[in-house]
Nucleic acid binder design. Structure first.
Lengths: 135, 135
DNA sequence: TCTGAAGGTTATAGTAACTATAAGGTCAAT
DNA sequence: ATTGACCTTATAGTTACTATAACCTTCAGA
């Protein structure tokens, strides 16, 4: 095992992930339990640093922590086929596209609503009317 | 007050919102407390029905329950200007657009990742490599 | 050497918007 | 009378954190 050189705060600075979040990741087991200094401080190595960056990048792609747990485990089994990884990416892509579809529909409808406001009283408000009355 | 004619399940059927969720909305106060039958069953009127549809439509536009609480309160003050409503719509539109931007970036990157998979072993996997190594 | 600030530790509760579960009461039909 | 579908409540679980409290450690400056 390699040298433990970062405190949780230093690791946080280097990864952009807050100390509380790092501890949380440890608690739910997606980061291994950190080794400790004599006084009980967590100490991290460059490997921990890499793993945390992996997590951050995966989160940025919208993967859930559950998915990331699996990805990390896949990443460790060097000899296995990467089909599982590819499948996860594919699945995530579909989910993102589905969210995109929903959000685009929301955008259209909100634009429509926004355009129909004429600045009167609530009793004449087309927005409220639309929200209230359309099927 | 108008006639109370639906049970929670009937209201659920008519709105597509589940009984548990309707009760939940009552509990957090975005629906008024329903009146009760002799045996304690909740009873709803067509006004309740409308209000619930309002909530459902607003949810479909991505508004939070907090926002919807405010929208409902605005909708009730007929004499007020609808500027507040318009502002909420505008703000929601911006939020949706911001989410869209994030998701589009995710889609691009996932597409890129997905395209670079060549079906070998994990140790050669470009996806894992990318997740592990890029800044 | 003392002191105070900036960091570390734990445990617990709160967030959003539900969903799930348990344990029971009611109602209409057979 | 009993079944099944519905209703009631309360409590806990979900996701990915964030906030709070109460305390300990480390280090730089007076």
């Amino acid at each position: 095992m390699s040298k433990k050189i970062f405190t949780v705060g230093q690791l946080a600075d280097r990864t952009g992930i807050k100390p509380v979040t790092i501890r949380y990741y440890e608690k739910i087991g997606i980061l291994p339990a950190a080794s400790r200094s004599e006084s009980g401080y967590r100490l991290y190595s460059v490997e921990d640093h890499s793993k945390l960056l992996f997590i951050r990048r995966s989160r940025a792609l919208g993967f859930s922590l559950g998915d990331i747990r699996e990805l990390l485990s896949l990443a460790d089994s060097q000899q296995e086929s990467c089909a599982g990884v590819d499948a996860k990416v594919e699945q995530q892509l579909e989910q993102v596209r589905s969210r995109l579809k929903d959000l685009r529909a929301m955008e259209q409808e909100l634009k429509r609503l926004s355009a129909c406001c004429e600045g009167g009283m609530i009793m004449d408000c087309r927005i409220i009317e639309t929200l209230s009355c359309k099927t």
